[in-house]
Amino acid sequence: MNNDIVLRVEDIHKSFGDNEVLRGVSFDVRRGETKVFIGPSGTGKSTLLRCINQLTPPDRGRVWLDGEEVTNSGARINYFRQKIGMVFQNFFLFDHLTALKNVELALLKVRGMGKAEAREKALNELRQVGMEDWADHYPAELSGGQAQRVSIARALAMDPDVILFDEPTSALDPELTREVLEVMKKLAGEGMTMLVVTHEMGFACSVANEVLFMENGVVAEQGTPDQLLHDPQYTRMKDFIGRIDSRLGD
């Protein structure tokens, strides 16, 4: 990890009707960094990710990728979206295409790659997530964990500068969660820049460079996993983690 800032998010605001979901969120992401967002449901974590790639355009605030403004970029947004990968809670694989074709599609249609080259790259990405043997299977034939790994391969194929993970394991049972988290851990280890919204505290503590605790539409507390575990000043984050633990009967 170096100090080169790849993504800058500045003062993002977003309301849905009277409901102000994001109330001024700012942070910088350095290349190779993994930032994990935790916090109670409904505090705007997923909306924040969608504001970054403009799937949900923010009401106010700006986003820069590699020094170029993503917000208000007009048609160029499609260029930025290639550079900002996204992985969804419910995978959103293209149901009518095989795993391989899911990964290939944007290479062919967005990047304009030739068939042979796209196929080779797609197979390579599937190998990265351990899914090359399932290349010819359709989404409905895959387990949730397998489907999520294919969707990670699909995001990787665009050679993104950063990948946004929106609760990637929330739809999975513990066993399948583990196989997806392992892939993500591997990516983090290889220097992929990642923003992860998750409730997996174990993952947050072992992989994150920084944990951001969101509450009521703002980043309430932020720090390294070590700080949040051992520094007494992080009271609200501790409360939240305590609530998760007690829910688990710890």
Binding site: N78, R81, M86, F92, A106, V110, R154
Partner: peptide, 21 residues
């Protein structure tokens, strides 16, 4: 909706998402 959202998140235009997904 997720099909359209995922396609757009990959950088497809709305038309490409409609046409191919």
């Amino acid at each position: 909706d997720g099909q359209m959202i995922a396609a757009q998140a990959l950088g497809m235009t709305r038309w490409q998402a409609i046409r191919h997904v």
